[in-house]
Design a protein around this nucleic acid. Structure first.
Lengths: 336, 336
DNA sequence: AGTATTATGTAGAACGTTCTCCATTGTTAG
DNA sequence: CTAACAATGGAGAACGTTCTACATAATACT
């Protein structure tokens, strides 16, 4: 009474049954008569009982799924999260997000913390860690990795088909008549493999080769500033590219600024394309051609796979989501 | 061994002491010799022991703080979250975010879930619920409310001084020579009181009155579409305003689109100002004059207040953060 | 009618911590 | 030299669930 918390024992007393019986009803377990069901449900309603997650955790499930966010600022996380929560809305599961930061160390600390809080499963979004670390986490709890290609032995994965996405952009630009198409990518981090930027760059190279064109990749970073610096360097060249494909929209915004400052009009003097189709890409003042990943589908798929795994699937699954190209105002035919 | 989890008993066995002693060392409690300290610490390191949060929760603290997000899509949450996590980085506390959604019902479900998971305290960001509901939550666990003015009996509050912020905008516009300044606000929700948009609108009215000007408030919603619709209506009038102050940047973006579509140049034909200073406001193609809230400070303050309360403060505190005006390219003198 | 089977309810032992007593030392005061 | 006290370590009872075993009651099968 002092603690204020209603426990299963209170319910049992009220209904005149054992705590074990109440537990059965709460869990919807086998071996409960209709009468028992009614009595207990009534007592639960009257007292406003809610199971104590920590106590549950000590025995079995905690009905909590964790989503580790590698960068809270990434503008297309909200879609993924909405996809995850939407999919789980009718279930008993609750979703909690863990801000993991950009550093491998803080991400590791966060995943540890989530495991320590005995979450039933984890969705890791673009985690920056070695395959060994990932595998270690996957032995401790069910895991679905989002946005990382390759090695999915112990865990499931949901990836955007970044090779295809990059190909869509290149095909589109070539179709418009461009031949000098540069790509801005993110500086490789030593520890992580199969991250989207690598795969996008590779997809770009493949597509250029397929069209018999020379590739031109510049590595800066996926920030506004990174896009700006990269574009400035590219635009200073003698035979400057007529189109720049940035591996992320945020970098494409920097490219647009560089074009504006150089007095180049878009898309007449320079076509620009991005990747991710973040919300602002559709603003009329930006109107950025971009590759859309459908975060909803990605999030919903990740949630589905995770629940499947929690409920017993052992075979590992990788789901690839096809992106689409959204053509807007920043791409057009090159000046003749 | 089968579960893989290292428990306090394993550590105790390894160090040749009791579990109670290990617990003392882990918690840094009183009554531990230097020798004991060393033995146990070594055993912990060797075994890689980490305390099990759920088990802790059953007795005392869980060292978890929850942040309920009312809208994941709100672009200035990342700053607040960074402020919170930054402040807590050197402590034992972990931060988990709960996507509460926009609906009062889902928000209530999320806060309940956080309480059930026995978090040590909660930060609620712009919660949409009645004062009674808030008070109920505050009796169950320490609470800090962010972005809601008024009634802070049982909990602490961190607010942006929205009256001041609105005043800054009006003063700036009047200083440029504007007299017909309209304000776009969010449609009032019945259940919640003291939400920022209400206070901003009130601050706008006060400031206009102080300058001897007639106010002109239009209520749509804080979305791009809401800003667009509102501006279209305002711009269709005979004596259309020369400046529009939107209560949120996201709505200001819609205002810009309406201006573009109406063939009005900004700021010559129409000045536009927003509120929140979201990241894209600084993009050269947007360059939106806006009020900056310094989410870092807000988040850090909220974290500090929450920890203080958890550690014993009972007197309730409200902290008001002063905003600053960031003047950019969307505001200028009206055409004579 | 007697036995096998199924359905329903309960006891009680975990789960991994924390924390309040106690018990044992060693130290200081008188 | 004894009494009082501080310092240290340990026993064991919580905390609120789940779940295995078991007891009982009801039903089905010879």
């Amino acid at each position: 009474m002092t603690s204020g918390r209603v426990t299963i024992a209170d319910v049992a007393r009220r209904a005149g049954v054992s705590t074990a019986a109440v537990s059965k009803v709460v869990r919807g377990a086998y071996g409960v008569s209709a009468e028992m069901q009614a009595k207990v449900t009534q007592a639960i309603d009257e007292l406003g009982y809610r199971p104590h997650a920590a106590a549950r955790a000590l025995r079995g499930r905690t009905y909590t799924l964790g989503v580790m966010l590698s960068d809270t600022r990434n503008p297309f996380f909200p879609d993924i999260i909405e996809g995850v929560t939407g999919r789980l809305a009718d279930t008993e599961y609750q979703v909690l997000l863990g801000p993991g930061g950009i550093e491998p160390k803080t991400q590791a600390r966060m995943t540890d913390a989530m495991i320590d809080r005995s979450m039933d499963g984890l969705i890791l979004i673009s985690p920056v860690m070695t395959d060994a670390e990932l595998a270690a986490i996957a032995t401790a709890t069910p895991v679905v990795v989002v946005g990382r290609h390759g090695g999915a032995a112990a865990y499931d994965a949901v990836v955007d088909d970044d090779v295809m996405g990059a190909g869509l952009v290149v095909d589109h630009l070539v179709g418009l008549g461009h031949t000098r198409i540069a790509h801005i990518t993110h500086l490789e981090r030593a520890r992580a493999q199969g991250l989207p930027h690598t795969v996008r760059a590779e997809g770009y190279r493949q597509a250029m080769r397929a069209h018999g064109l020379a590739d031109d990749v510049l590595a800066t970073s996926f920030t506004e500033e990174g896009g700006f610096e990269g574009a400035r360097e590219l635009l200073a060249r003698d035979d400057r590219p007529t189109a720049i494909f940035a591996g992320a929209d945020i970098a494409a915004l920097g490219v647009l600024r560089a074009a504006d400052e150089a007095g180049l009009s878009v898309p007449e003097d320079l076509s620009v394309a991005g990747y991710d189709n973040i919300g602002i890409a559709s603003l009329n003042r930006i109107s950025l051609t971009s590759v859309d990943q459908d975060g909803h589908v990605i999030g919903a798929t990740a949630a589905r796979l995770l629940v499947e795994r929690i409920e017993g699937r052992t075979r590992s699954v990788t789901s690839s989501v096809s992106p689409t190209l959204i053509v807007r105002g920043t791409t057009g035919p090159p000046r003749p």
